[in-house]
Design a binder for these strands. Structure first.
Lengths: 135, 135
DNA sequence: GTCCCTGCAAATCCTTTGCACTCCT
DNA sequence: AGGAGTGCAAAGGATTTGCAGGGAC
């Protein structure tokens, strides 16, 4: 069994991701971390984000663009991806568990994870589109 | 406006994907197509699959491995991805539309697409695991 | 004949990895 | 001291793209 150590880099990554709702990619986080710690490397950011995700402290998301996004909230919930501005939003569904159980009954096998992703235009981009149409 | 032409390659891709339930990747399809048509190129396969998906004739899936899988059935439905054997299975949920409408009410914005992915062990792999445990 | 589509190979993008060195414990 | 973790750069895998020639209409 592997014995984990605390490192400054890992703590910084935790700290920078904590309380965020913008679901940054590894690269975005890396660029931000570089400001405080110019020596930090992209490989380290990837390694730690994956490690934290594997241990269930955070979650890794595939929303539909090619990149992996990271969410400090490890609880399963729905995500919305905007086709235009590429933002990723949380959607909290009170009956998520119910839905999962409904699904489970349809599958012979073992479900470890259920991912629901919505795609479209976020409120902001939708408004902009309407404004552009009016012009 | 672009005027599409019918090509032998596009027709072969349609033909090879039709009626399949194994959700092949571009590369898998390419290897199969090469048998009949050794000159076909991977780029062409990618271009045509993406084109067919953009036009809504088929659908492109992100199931959780890094690759894009293709489904000849363009109708939205649930997919199950097996962690062990990497197979992708269809799950047909009769109340899928209901679920979608439930979700829509939670989102301010416009939903173009709703994707539900399950991940775990398929029936076959689950059985194998049990057998291995018994030994 | 036009110009969309192909084959080919190189390029690109995101992510992972090997290695020597660092620094927690 | 031991070995997990880091920085760096190179490798890797999937997908896209530029371009010259080919074929559908």
């Amino acid at each position: 069994m592997l014995k984990r150590r605390n490192t400054r880099q890992r703590d910084q990554i935790r700290e920078y991701l904590k309380d965020r709702t913008d679901h940054p990619t590894a690269e975005k986080l890396y660029n931000e971390l570089k400001v405080k710690n110019p020596k930090i490397s992209l490989g380290t950011v990837y390694r730690n984000l994956m490690l934290l995700a594997d241990e269930g402290e955070i979650q890794a998301l595939n929303v539909g663009d090619a990149k992996t996004h990271f969410d400090p909230n490890p609880e399963p919930h729905v995500h919305f991806f905007c086709r235009k501005c590429k933002c990723v939003l949380d959607v909290h569904l009170e009956n998520y568990d119910e839905f999962n159980q409904l699904l489970s009954r349809k599958v012979t096998g073992e479900i470890t994870r259920c991912t629901v992703n919505l795609e479209g235009l976020c409120e902001t981009c939708l408004k902009e589109n309407v404004i552009n149409l009016k012009r």
